[in-house]
Amino acid sequence: MKANKAFNLKKDTRAQVGIGTLIIFIAMVLVAAVAAAVLIQTSGILQQKAQATGKQSTQEVSSNLMIKNIEGVRAKTGTNLSDTIDMLKLQVGLNVGSSPVDVNQVVISITDGTIAHNLVYGGNTKSYDPMTGFVATNTAAQNLEALLTNSGNPTQFYTVDRIRDEDQSFSQGNPVMNTGDLILVYISTTSSDGASLTAIGSTSGNLTSSDLSLVPRTLVNIVLTPESGAATVAEFVTPSSYGVKENVQLYP
């Protein structure tokens, strides 16, 4: 029979010691710490950029402004009415959840199919010279009169008035719309025929032409382009006859 064999495990109690091992260990810890710090910083920057991009994208694709109603007004002298629509009154509000809108930076494009104008707010001092006759401390009616009676104004500018402004933050000099605000935008569309008359609504004086001509059955396109957000478009055809109406409902 074979003799039983005994197996003994060799105990190795030796280990690396010394300054070299300590340096390697510290270096590994430092590398791991630096790598972790870089990853944390990079992820934070990416998160901030992603949030900013998401917010900007939401603003660009969302429509802040909403045209609720458009009414046309004909020029007159006594009971004699113009054959054209000579002023537009746009009732404009903000969509739910919209950020504030600075009307100073809203560009309105309007065309009657033949003539097109790009209009800015009459009190815009940030990008353009103010409209002739515009005064920030004037009433909306006074600035509307300046729009309708000063040559060149109707082809370059529009004016506004507030309908609802709970926090009293909207003014002629600082026309900033907040959620819940509702304003009237006045666009002069006075034709050469209308300019020969003496009044539009409650405004009287020497009317000036806008070069537009909104006769019956005219296709009108209006685009409101805010500083940020999608443009708002309103397109309508004027009625086949204005009859004896001074104020004509046009949109919706």
Rank of each mutant, 00 (worst) to 15 (best):
Asn80Cys: 11
Thr77His: 06
Ser62Tyr: 13
Gly78Tyr: 00
Gly122Trp: 04
Glu71Arg: 11
Tyr121Pro: 09
Thr84Phe: 06
Tyr128Asp: 07
Asn69Ala: 00
Thr84Asp: 14
Val73Met: 08
Val120Met: 07
Gly122Thr: 08
Ser63Tyr: 03
Gly133Pro: 09
Gln91Leu: 05
Thr114Trp: 01
Ser82Arg: 01
Ala141Pro: 02
Lys126Ser: 15
Met66Gly: 03
Gly97Trp: 09
Gln56Ile: 06
Asn124Met: 11
Tyr121Thr: 13
Ile110Val: 12
Val135Gln: 11
Val101Asp: 07
Gln59Leu: 14
Asn143Pro: 03
Thr58Glu: 09
Asp86Asn: 07
Ala136Cys: 07
Ala140Ile: 04
Asn64His: 15
Leu119Arg: 10
Met66Phe: 11
Gly97Arg: 07
Gly72His: 04
Gln142Ala: 15
Val107Cys: 00
Ala141Arg: 10
Leu119Met: 13
Gln105His: 00
Gly97Phe: 08
Phe134Ala: 09
Val135Met: 09
Thr58Gly: 00
Val107Tyr: 00
Thr111Cys: 01
Val96Phe: 03
Thr132Leu: 13
Lys68Met: 07
Asn104Tyr: 10
Tyr121Asn: 05
Thr139Gln: 01
Gly78Trp: 00
Asp83Glu: 13
Thr137Ala: 11
Ile108Cys: 04
Gly113Phe: 14
Lys55Trp: 01
Met66Val: 15
Val73Leu: 08
Thr84Gly: 00
Ile67Ala: 06
Pro100Asp: 05
Asn124Ser: 08
Asp129Ile: 15
Phe134Arg: 05
Leu88Ala: 07
Ile108His: 05
Gln56Thr: 09
Thr114Leu: 11
Glu60Pro: 06
Leu90Arg: 02
Gly97Leu: 09
Leu119Pro: 11
Met66Arg: 11
Leu65Tyr: 08
Ala140Trp: 11
Val92His: 04
Leu144Cys: 07
Asp112Asn: 13
Val96Gln: 12
Gly123Val: 12
Lys55Glu: 12
Thr77Gln: 13
Thr132Asn: 14
Ser57Val: 13
Lys55His: 07
Gly78Leu: 03
Thr111Met: 01
Lys89Ala: 10
Val92Tyr: 08
Val92Trp: 06
Thr84Glu: 05
Ile70Ala: 05
Gly113Thr: 12
Thr79Ser: 15
Gly133Gln: 07
Ile110Gly: 00
Gln59Cys: 07
Glu60Lys: 13
Ser127Leu: 15
Thr132Ala: 14
